[in-house]
Design a protein around this nucleic acid. Structure first.
Length: 471
DNA sequence: TTTTGAGTTGTTCGA
DNA sequence: GTCGAACAACTCAAA
């Protein structure tokens, strides 16, 4: 075995280009590229079903880019890495940093173990534009409001790293031929569900780059307005690619900024900065996923109603735009941002169900399930987060439908049982005259549910409950 | 040091 | 139908 072997530990950086850790590993000799599926240290935040499905395909794609030389393992990196280091007489290990609290914890431990074995560990920033500790207020504390975080923090900090090329020379270690280990990770769901899900996506580094190029070519020019309309293709749909690191935020940031900086470009960059903000919140609040940032919400009278929770999950609430969103999630592993706000506001405010239940379902079903983004966004909607939506901001799912899905294209696609309804009653079929329903072949309570909650009185109920927290 | 104004994404009500 | 005000409290930064 030759000297100077470096392990590159792939985590959320499933790409070759703009991968600082891999780039550096490759420049110092032979590389052993590995991936470890860790369901031990992740605990309750172990990857959800949709994410696993994506991971399966992403690993396949990465393995192909690596000429079939990616080694995959299942278990605890705290054991696996030292063992590998011994077996291959490794002198260096590189990885790109992760920011989930459980991940930070084991990375710290691991570093210590490896250093004791006289192995050099180098970690890099491969998934954020700015490190959380580099964007702080003048008093040294983390920001709690997005706009100053972005303007005074991010934009005045050092410019993000320019994207690196793929390693010019990537010498990979030759290892014994083995069966397809990726298949054996058992990441694919047993149900047919997985196949349907994945049919909506192209996965892997190449696909991610094509997605970005396509977005920059066609959609970014109308991003500011278009991003609100779920039936349009104006959003980037990069979130799962970014989550798994098939593309870096730097590639997206500089890609967008290759155009002159108009309000569309700026809005897209702001969305990338929201991701940074979420990571900052998670980094400085390790319990972001489980604990209200605003303590006074600890006394909030959440209801417990597993029946209503299931109906929400299944897209059977009887509120068309909500059901459309929840079905899009189930069928495609994704939900348009505007609709995420509508369905989550509905769960938290109209149903008064705990945001953590909503977040858990998203975690299970979203391809882009990301602890920082998911937790921060649910807290934002619920009003218990940093810089959160004001308590009185309760989306009216009828108005939202009429405003942002005016022609009903999105809602009719995912709730086909209502497709014959005229626009006027598409978002509020319970208010349609009998003959309109008959003509549209809609039988409420039979082929489409009656609303599980009255929008007006549930809004009043939420306002009362939320108001009681304030004083 | 203190004050002031603004802050991702909304809705309803009454003039 | 359109429009402004009200629906809080708190954080942050500029004046």
């Amino acid at each position: 075995m030759s000297k100077n072997i470096t392990i590159h530990w792939f985590r959320k950086d499933l790409r070759l280009s703009d991968n600082p850790a891999l780039y550096n590993a490759a420049s110092s000799g032979v590389v052993l590229p590995i991936y470890i599926l860790d369901d031990i240290n992740s605990g309750v935040f172990k990857m959800g079903s949709a994410s696993r499905c994506w991971l399966h395909h992403s690993l396949k794609s990465l393995n192909q880019s690596l000429g079939g030389k990616l080694q995959v393992f299942v278990g605890d990196p705290l054991n696996i890495l030292p063992e590998l280091a011994k077996k291959y007489k490794i002198s260096n290990i590189t990885w790109n940093r992760c920011y989930e609290p459980w991940q930070i914890k084991i990375d710290t431990k691991l570093k210590q173990i490896l250093i004791n074995l006289e192995i050099k560990v180098n970690s890099y920033n491969g998934s954020l534009l700015w490190e959380p500790w580099d964007v702080l207020k003048k008093d040294g504390l983390a920001y709690k409001v997005f706009t100053p975080f972005y303007h005074n923090g991010c934009l005045k900090a050092k410019e993000p790293r320019l994207p690196l090329p793929s390693p010019p020379k990537l010498l990979l270690i030759e290892t014994e031929k083995s069966l397809d280990k990726i298949e054996q990770l058992g990441l694919l769901p047993k149900l047919e569900w997985g196949k349907t899900l994945i049919s909506h996506w192209h996965i892997g580094e190449l696909a991610a780059n094509e997605r970005l190029a396509d977005f920059l070519d066609k959609d970014i020019q109308s991003y500011k307005e278009g991003r609100d309309f779920p039936a349009m293709s104006s959003v980037s749909r990069l979130s799962p690619h970014l989550h798994f690191g098939e593309i870096s935020p730097n590639q997206a940031w500089y890609g967008a900024r290759s155009f002159s900086l108009d309000s569309n470009i700026d809005h897209f960059c702001r969305e990338l900065a929201w991701r940074e903000f979420s990571y900052s919140l998670l980094y400085f609040n390790h319990e972001l996923a489980t604990k209200n940032l605003q303590q006074k919400f600890d006394f909030f009278p959440w209801r417990y109603d597993s029946k209503q929770l299931s109906l929400w999950q299944e897209g059977k609430t009887g509120i068309p735009i909500v059901d459309a969103g929840m079905r899009q999630l189930w069928q495609t592993g994704y939900m348009h941002n505007r609709i995420r706000m509508v369905v989550s506001s509905f769960l938290v405010k109209n149903l008064l169900l705990d945001w953590r239940d909503g977040a858990r379902w998203f975690w299970e079903c979203l391809f882009d399930a990301d602890l920082a983004n998911n937790s921060a966004s649910w807290q934002w909607v619920s009003g218990c987060g940093a810089d959160a939506a004001p308590y009185f901001r309760i989306f009216n799912p009828v108005t939202q439908g009429q405003k942002f899905d005016q022609s009903g294209e999105y809602t009719r696609y995912f709730v086909p049982e209502l497709k014959l309804l005229p626009d006027k009653y598409l978002f509020n079929p319970w208010e349609a005259p009998v003959e309109v329903l008959q003509t549209a072949k809609v039988e409420l309570g039979i082929n489409y549910p009656l609303p599980i909650v009255d929008l007006y009185s549930s809004r009043v109920r939420a306002l009362t409950a939320l108001k009681s927290l304030i004083s």
